[in-house]
Computed example of a mutant assay.
Amino acid sequence: MRGISHTVKKPYSYSCFECGENFFHKGEFLKHYRSHTGEKLYSCPECGKRFTEKATFSRHQRLHMGEKLYSCSECGKRFTQKSLLVRHQRTHTGEKPYVCSECGKCFTQKRLLVRHQITHTGEKPYSCPECGKCFTQKSSLNEHQIRHTGTKQFICNECDKCYVRKSELVDHQRSHTGEKPYSCLECGKCFSRETYLNKHRKTHTTVKIN
């Protein structure tokens, strides 16, 4: 097979011709080598999406089945992927591991940090073809374009109220479920929205001057 260097001294050792990385098992090598070739052996029968690794393919299938193996020990909420659980748990702990090197601001998710860093450069690569307004993120452009059409595509299945943004729908749905995933580390009080929690936190830090 092209790409394999088979040594005599170590018959179970495989070396990648592309990058030089070594492997003791053929399976590990083949898995690695597909990262160079882009070969995707695993195809989802539901949506046709393809994957290079079986583990990633299995995680994807759980999205279709709705299987939620990972549960939060704080509130009991369940998730299809461990990474989603870890991200959710930060709403309880307040952990923000991603730090901006420019201003020191911290974030719970890497994508939020990347989005924030654009504010320092001022770059706005996404422009609206209707009005020419520019945006730092494609998602912001997409939301903006919906405002031109007036479409409210996110509908509450409880009361049929409609929203332009999915985040607005999620916030609204908590008024039906009573879910309050954002908790204060100082006093334990819980809130349905992060903005409410941030506003509440200021009551702990405010200094009263007589």
Rank of each mutant, 00 (worst) to 15 (best):
G3E: 04
H6F: 06
V8E: 15
K10V: 08
P11W: 08
S13I: 02
E18P: 04
C19S: 13
G20S: 03
E21F: 11
N22A: 10
F23W: 03
K26L: 15
L30A: 06
K31I: 05
R34Y: 10
S35L: 12
H36Y: 03
T37D: 00
T37E: 03
G38Y: 00
G38A: 01
S43N: 11
P45W: 03
F51L: 02
F51K: 01
E53T: 00
K54N: 13
A55L: 07
T56E: 09
T56L: 06
F57N: 11
S58V: 09
R59L: 05
R62I: 00
L63Y: 03
M65F: 13
E67A: 08
Y70D: 00
E74I: 05
F79S: 00
F79E: 01
T80P: 08
L85S: 14
L85Q: 14
H88L: 04
R90D: 02
R90F: 01
R90I: 02
T91L: 12
T93D: 04
G94E: 01
K96I: 02
P97H: 15
Y98K: 09
Y98H: 15
C100D: 10
S101D: 14
E102H: 13
C106S: 15
Q109G: 03
Q109W: 01
R111H: 12
L113E: 06
V114G: 01
R115N: 06
H116D: 07
H116A: 08
T121V: 05
G122P: 06
E123S: 08
E123R: 13
P125Q: 14
C128H: 08
C128W: 10
P129G: 09
E130L: 00
G132C: 13
G132K: 12
T136R: 12
S140Q: 09
L141G: 11
E143V: 08
R147V: 04
H148T: 12
T149G: 06
T149D: 05
G150H: 11
T151N: 13
Q153Y: 01
F154H: 07
I155K: 05
C159G: 07
K166A: 10
K166E: 13
L169I: 11
D171R: 14
D171L: 10
H172G: 08
H172K: 05
R174D: 05
T177V: 02
E179L: 07
P181I: 03
Y182C: 11
L185P: 02
C187H: 08
G188N: 05
K189P: 07
K189S: 07
K189Y: 01
C190E: 05
E194S: 02
T195A: 03
L197M: 09
N198Y: 07
R201Q: 15
R201M: 13
K202C: 01
H204Q: 06
H204K: 02
T205D: 04
T206I: 01
I209N: 07
N210V: 00
